[in-house]
Structure formats: C-alpha cells, structure tokens
Design a protein around this nucleic acid. Structure first.
Lengths: 234, 234
DNA sequence: TAGTGGTCTAGACCACGGT
DNA sequence: CCGTGGTCTAGACCACTAG
C-alpha cells in the first residue's frame, strides 16, 4: 500500500515502487505491467495519479505505453559493461584480478554552503608486481549522508563497501553522460600516455534505493580499458 | 483561441503555440510566461490541460518551472539526449522534431569476397529552416541478407523502417564499444566545429532476433547531442 | 497575504486493439 | 464487444515565493 500521510507524493511513491519492481526483475522486459485501472484499484488512488507515475517512468525510458494494449517494460539498459559504476572491486575480484586503488586527492569541499567529501582515486590492477591503471575516479559525497566518511582509508577499503557496511546505503542506479575529454598531465603520467590524446569521460549521479542522490562521479577511462555496452531493442 | 473541434488535442495545440512563441522570440530566455491560471482563462481550458502542455515543454527543455514563482523560458537549449542504435527517426518524431538524413556515401563494397552495402549518413533535425546535424552514421549491411537494398532512398526512408517492412528483419540487440575520436574535415564541416576537437564514437554490431549479425555500425556523435545512459546495480 | 506552481480527486468521453 | 490508454473537466487543498 501507499502511505497517504507520507510527505512523499503518492505518484512518487508509486513510481519508486514500480521502478523497484522493474529493476529487481519482477517484471521482465517486454512484459505487461498491470493496467492503469488495476493500479487505481490496488492502491486506492485516482487514475491521474497513476498516470503521473507511469508518465515519469516512460520519460525515464523504463516503460512504454501502447494505446489499446497496455503498458510494457522497456528496459534495455546496460547488460555487460567494463566500468566501475557500482562494482569495480567486485568486478575485478570475480575476474581473478587484484584491484588496486591509489588516493590522489581527498578533502572536504563546499558547494553552495553544503559540505561534501571529494575523493579522487586512480584505479587499476596489479600484474606481476606492476600496476596498470585503468581509470581515474572522482567522487563527490554529501557529508550530510556520510558523516565522518573522511576517516576511512580508501586505498584499503572499497567505497561501495563502506556505503553498504558503515552507512547502510545501497546504490541502486545511476545516470551517466558520456563525452570525450582532453587529457591533462596527471592522466598522461598515470596512464603512461605518449602524447596528448583524448580519453573517454563518464559523468553521472548515483542514486540509492530511496531515490536519494548519494554520489556524483566522474570517471576517466584510460587506454587500457574498453568500454563495451550491450543494448537490446524492442 | 484553440479549436476544440480540431482532432489535435488541446494540450498539443497549446504546446505548439507556446513553442512557436518561444522560438519566435516573443518570450525571450529567462522571461516569465503567463501563469497556469492565466492560460486557463485565456484559452478556456482546465489547468490539467495547461499543465500537460507545459510539462511537455519542460521535458523538451524549453521551459522551466519554479515553485511559487512562475514558468520561465530556459536560457540554454538542452542538448539532445540520445542513445539509440535503432530508432533515431522514431525517437525524434516522438519528440516532435523533424528528422533529417543526408546520404554522404552509398556503394557496394567487398570484404573477404562478400558483398556489402555501405551507407554513410549525416543525421539531424530541422529547426526553423535550418538543419542541425547530430550524428554521422556509417552502416555496413550484408547484401546476402538485404538483396537490392541499394534501391532505396535513405534520405526519405528510415533504414530500420526498410529492415522491418521490406525484409522482415527485426533488430534485437547490439554490442557497442565507445571511444573518443579525433574529428576529420568532414566532421568539422557537418557539425560546424570551430577547431579540432574530439568527438565520441560508438562502434558496434547489431543482431536480429535469430542472432544474425545484420549490421555493423559506426556512429560519430556531434557536440549537439548528449549520450546518456542509465545503469542499475544489483 | 496574494499569486504561483504541486498534488490529488472523481468523474466523463473518446480512440485503439483484440475477441 | 470489452479493456486498454488518451484526453479533458471542475473543482480542492497544499507549499513555496515575494511584497
């Protein structure tokens, strides 16, 4: 049921619930979700409210509505990828590689009078005593959500591990924008580039299960890593 | 006034009218447009309908609503957001844009004694008599699967439309590799770039429902388009 | 306090898809 | 035909912004 006394608007509650059900696989891609009238009955709200929730999810690209037929799950997001939004350490560990993190920068910053923790890391793998760096990650974390997060040693502990175990915050999804970026001297040094090249940059925001923005991320991908994506079409 | 007997829905009529007024400069960026209540009175429609029209324009990036203050014309046009192998035309049509394709190259080629059709197109939108190009697409299609595909005019007909309707071939998924690419003279001219920049390149293969490789694609994304991706973490 | 946008209700009629 | 989504009405109350 939805909570009418919750300050979170009803359509948002429904929206989150549906998104959760889609992302968790309760509705598979291509599957039809309950009709609008069915949802009004199930949650005791009007159709306008249901439509607002669905409309937002359609805009997000998660649902598709077909006149006279129904509302379908459209999900064709990233299935296979080699990047570290949500699991660099886990990913490499599974691949039997030894992940390495080197902290390049670490301090508190203020954006519009709000305190944040800024963390810049070079990340890579260890190969026969040599370290090959694959990405440079910049994370901006709100101290409001993560008080005293600067006490941890992120060369030893994975950021997402700390999220989960110290703050009980679970990353759920992210919105990412891809673009090319000219490399600076730090990148040349870390990635051992010959000359001036362009690299791939992913900038985005990470949200948790309650739709809170928990992290702003920038990832620069070095030349030793391939960004592969798989999409599906309906 | 709006025409209630017109089959075009009222919110769409209002939406077009407002868009027209914004694009024609009747409202300058940063300016406040009439309030929702004012619009209901002026056009004799309910607020729900007004809000639907405005909401769409907000999604298009033309307007911005500020609680308690009003609805304003956005300063910077939001860039086009697009991630689609297989749906450029549909995507833009839904967004109420006029898609434009210009064929740059079109010929048969041979790769290891196999005949292919190579098609290079600049793709974009038409805005007030001007064309803004967003991407340059190169498609390599096996003639074995698409006999006589060179007879179609791809400035008029969408490639995927031809796939579906002439050959009954339905794209299903794609594998894509992202990388930065230095721009060449053709790109500078088409995208109207000032200097030498880097752009985003997506290379990949598209497969159909029977797992056949139906297309090899290269898409160069110009500066007027944003590549946005949504990922989930489990 | 007045005006704005944000949310929500409880209906109505229509157009489309499949039976 | 029925069930689906698409459009629209005529209200209501709330939260935010600014004078």
């Amino acid at each position: 049921m939805l909570d009418k006394s919750d300050p979170v608007p009803l359509y948002m509650q429904l929206q989150r619930r549906l998104r959760e059900e889609i992302l968790s696989g309760q509705y598979v891609p291509g599957e039809k979700i309950p009709s609008e009238t069915e949802l009004t009955k199930r949650y005791q709200i009007t159709r306008t409210t249901v439509r607002k929730a669905i409309s937002n999810l359609v805009n997000e690209g998660l649902l598709e509505q077909i006149h006279g037929k129904g509302t379908y799950v459209r999900f064709q997001q990233v299935k296979y990828s080699l990047w570290n939004f949500g699991g660099f350490t886990d990913y490499l560990t599974k691949k039997n590689e030894v992940p390495v993190s080197k902290v390049l920068e670490q301090k508190r910053i203020y954006i519009q009078d709000e305190a944040y923790f800024k963390l810049v890391r070079a990340r890579g793998v260890k190969k026969e005593e040599k370290v090959i760096f694959l990405t440079i990650d910049t994370s901006i974390l709100p101290l409001k959500l993560f008080p005293d997060i600067d006490q941890y040693d992120f060369e030893r502990e994975s950021l997402y591990h700390v999220f989960r175990n110290r703050y009980s915050i679970f990353p759920r999804y992210s919105e990412i924008k891809m673009s090319p970026v000219k490399c600076d001297e730090r990148m040349i040094e870390i990635f051992k580039l010959d000359s001036e090249e362009s690299l791939l940059l992913a900038e985005g925001r990470v949200f948790d299960e309650e739709d809170r923005e928990i992290e702003r991320v920038k990832v620069v991908y070095g030349p030793n890593i391939e960004i592969k994506i798989m999409t599906t079409m309906n």
